[in-house]
Design a protein around this nucleic acid. Structure first.
Lengths: 151, 151
DNA sequence: TTTCGTGCAAAAGCTTTGCATTAGC
DNA sequence: GCTAATGCAAAGCTTTTGCACGAAA
């Protein structure tokens, strides 16, 4: 725990997620609460596996399937952002479950959230801010194409 | 084949890839040539599976493993861009093997290359240009973090 | 002729699913 | 008590790999 500001924000995010699940008549089990807590307190954009690894010591009954099922539920509710990677494995952000830029280390898989926002110039700023040596980027827009909108 | 301009560009891209592989002492087999041709002529950002499906009729000896091995080779040479998706499956762009924005249909998986480039304003332009109803985006920067640069 | 490439089949990861058991509410 | 959630194990997918055979240069 780095400081009070971090804890307060994480705690608030946790309670927000708990409240939203309760409002939708979902049960708050110890396992589910533990996953929510891991997601709201972590800034590392953890994988399902690493969430499981971090919890199984304290919650011996925890299973990887439960982590995945909780993540699926949170995705449906829009309470977690899934970053798809085939090589690195999918990563999850429960703090900011909305699209935002990421800076990703292609060697260790570290994922950092930069604080600002252009593109050619942005890359330069990203490097300064994060200390990364940026070599590539990915900019995707998701939505429905013309024909799919009609269906 | 839509028009001459398209064919000429695709043909040039094909010959470029062939030349670069030859220059690196890689053999041009019928199977490999077929994959290169599929990649250079396709604007659909095909999956490995769809490349295979499109070729197996004409090249009965073609295997999915060969498609994957060719894609791996091209990735190493920087001759194809891999778009990672866990849900949709990975997609490949052999025409523009460098980072560029994509507009992706979350329903049918169609991937389109928009012609221009900002972000809040860009989203609006993307929608007008492509006819997509854009609901989300993804902007990632890839590179080495501080500690990995030192190693 | 000498490697390199192919392709089958098996393996490897990650994620999902079926189902009996457990436990929120 | 009613249902939803858990968790084991099995299945599912995409991608990779081992290895013997075949073919490019």
């Amino acid at each position: 725990m780095k400081n009070d500001k971090t804890n307060i924000a994480s705690e608030q995010r946790l309670e927000q997620m708990v409240g939203r699940l309760k409002d939708n008549d979902h049960r708050i089990t110890p396992q589910r609460y533990a996953v929510l807590k891991a997601l709201s307190y972590s800034k590392a954009h953890p994988s399902a596996e690493s969430i499981y690894e971090g919890l199984v010591a304290h919650y011996p009954t925890m299973s990887l399937a439960t982590v995945y099922k909780t993540l699926t539920l949170l995705k449906q509710k829009g309470e977690v952002l899934e970053l798809e990677f085939s090589e690195l494995g999918n990563r999850y952000d429960g703090n900011k479950p909305y699209p935002h830029p990421h800076v990703i280390c292609t060697e260790c898989g570290k994922i950092v959230d930069p604080s600002m926002f252009a593109l050619e110039e942005i890359t330069e700023k990203m490097m300064k801010e994060t200390g990364f040596k940026i070599e590539s980027h990915r900019l995707d827009f998701y939505g429905l194409c013309g024909s799919c909108q009609k269906e």
